[in-house]
Every structure is written in structure tokens, then in C-alpha cells.
Design a protein around this nucleic acid. Structure first.
Lengths: 148, 148
DNA sequence: GGTATAAAAGACTTCTGTGTCCTTTTTACA
DNA sequence: TGTAAAAAGGACACAGAAGTCTTTTATACC
């Protein structure tokens, strides 16, 4: 509806890495994909994009793999969204009018804008760390078995 | 983002028909597509679906075309949404967890639910007629030239 | 340096929403 | 009854997201 499949995979990938890399070990796509029951190569490309955008760190070769950067936990979901989804679309009129802005609003413009703002605010104010706190906090088991 | 291209075409098609059928004349896809600057055959299929779902009436043959039903103006955008989009998706977890409901919510579950409810409420409470009232009311010129 | 390991990169396929084209059906009217 | 006009229906093409496969690049260790 709002978010791409890639976004979900990205989030879950980051979450998995953060939960198993405690003893400093790096994690391979192979393992992540298997545990999350997600297509390996597709996930690989997504993680690759996250690395390009500074949300993860990767190392090639033996003992290589993916790991969090020092500030991955502080990143907002909006930053992840920007690497996996086309943020441009947030500006397009839902009724597909060419010109639709605050000066020439379509009948749904103001209402849609409000909902979008709520959505963007949710993504902005939620950090990766936040996903581990509160009553809906995640556990490794729930992420890995994809049985949340 | 939230709505398909088909939805926008459907809305605009209905709006165009409602604005030019005053003298009881029926309107042809040909004309609608041309005025809205949208693909003719594609629009045809969308209008066809609207007819199937009772949101429009159509007549074949000479002097045929599309026209509103007695209650088209009272229909909600949600009903149009249901013919053009996959309403099922409104139930899917944005983080793509298999099991995500009020008993086993993902960290975004409650927030996403709220936004979706707002969205569905907007579609539910807005009727076709509503698009013609208020300060953002549409005019034929703005719809037809797609220059809103 | 050679080899094994892992990410990166690129080509290709599949699926779905969008869009095009051609044929069939229905209907008004001469 | 024939013809033209219109929607309905079906087959196909295109584009972007999703997914698969193979090759290249980087690196640790012998």
C-alpha cells in the first residue's frame, strides 16, 4: 500500500544483523536471507543499496559480510525509505491532475496532504532503535522465523 | 503512493460525464479520453468496470455512450477505489511480516493502522458530489484541460 | 602468488499495472 | 434487413518492481 516490498526486506535485514552481530561478527546475505525466508540475491541488492547510502557497512572476502555502522541504530525509517522507494511520488496528486498544489488544489489535496504528513512523520520520528523498544518490541525469534 | 492511476482516471471520467451530460446526452469514451488526455482504450476498460459495479450506466450502439446512474453522485470514493484498486492490500503488514495483527503487532502496526483508517475514512466519507462543493470544487474547464 | 570466500555488478526472467489493437456484440435507424 | 455506431471483450505490448543467475572484484589466509 504505502511501502515497497524492498523496504520491508531492508528493515528486517537491518534488524536481523543488529540482533546477531553482538560479538562483532559479520553476517552474510546467505544467512540473513535464509533466516528471513527472503530471496537471497534480491536481498543482496537491497543491502548493497543500504551500504551505498551509509546505512550499513559491508566487507568482501573471507570473514566478510554485513554489519551495522556506528550510527545505524539512530537512522530513521525515512532514510531507509529513501533508498528503497521513490520518495518523489509523495508529491504526486492522487487524482492524477497535472497541476495540483496548495494554490490549485484538487478536492482531495488537503486531506491527502495531511495523511501523507502523518506518514512521513511516522517514518521520520521512528529510528531503527525504536523498533526494539516499547510493547511491540521485536525479538530475534519473531524476526527470524518471520512469524511476528 | 496510495491510489492507482486507474483510480484517478475513473474519478476524472465520472466527473467529466457528470459535467457534460446535463441535457441528458450520453458521452462516448472517445470524447472523454480526448478531453482528459488519457489513453482511450484503457479508460474504456475502467469505465466498463465501473458499469459492472453499478457506478455508471452504458448503452451500446448509435447514440449510446456512458451516463451517470441516478445515484452515482451519492457514491463514495471508497466504492470507486474497490473497483480500481486491490482493497485487500489495506490489510497487509508494511514491514512484510507474515503474522501482523492486533494480537501480534509489528512495531509500526498501530501507527500504520491509524493512517490507514484516516485514509479509508476519507474515501468513505467523500462522495462524488462532494468533489463539486467547497472551495476546492471542480469546474469543467479544469477537469477537461487537466490543468487543475 | 594461489585459493577460497564474500560482496558487487550485470544480464536475464517473471509478475503486475498500464496501455494498444483488433474482433465481437448490441442497438438505432434507413 | 443492412449498415453504422458504440461498448464489450480478448490478445498482445510495455514498464517498473520483484526475483534469479552468472561473472567480476576485493580480501583473508596459506
Amino acid at each position: 500500500m504505502f511501502l515497497s516490498k524492498s523496504f520491508g526486506y531492508a528493515i528486517r535485514g537491518i534488524l536481523y544483523i543488529s540482533m546477531v552481530q553482538d560479538e562483532g561478527r559479520k553476517v552474510q546475505v546467505e544467512e540473513i536471507a535464509e533466516k528471513l525466508a527472503v530471496p537471497k540475491h534480491f536481498l543482496g541488492k537491497i543491502l548493497q543499496e543500504l551500504v551505498k547510502n551509509g546505512l550499513l557497512k559491508s566487507t568482501k572476502g573471507p570473514y566478510g559480510g554485513f554489519e551495522l555502522t556506528p550510527d545505524t541504530m539512530e537512522k530513521s525509517l525515512l532514510e531507509i525509505f529513501k533508498t528503497t522507494d521513490d520518495a518523489e511520488q509523495l508529491g504526486h496528486c492522487e487524482l492524477r491532475f497535472n497541476k495540483c498544489d496548495s494554490d490549485h488544489p484538487c478536492p482531495l489535496h488537503h486531506n491527502v496532504l495531511k495523511i501523507r504528513e502523518d506518514f512521513v512523520e511516522l517514518l521520520s520520528k521512528t529510528t531503527v532503535k525504536d523498533l526494539f523498544t516499547g510493547e511491540t518490541a521485536l525479538t530475534l525469534d519473531r524476526i527470524a522465523t518471520n512469524n511476528l
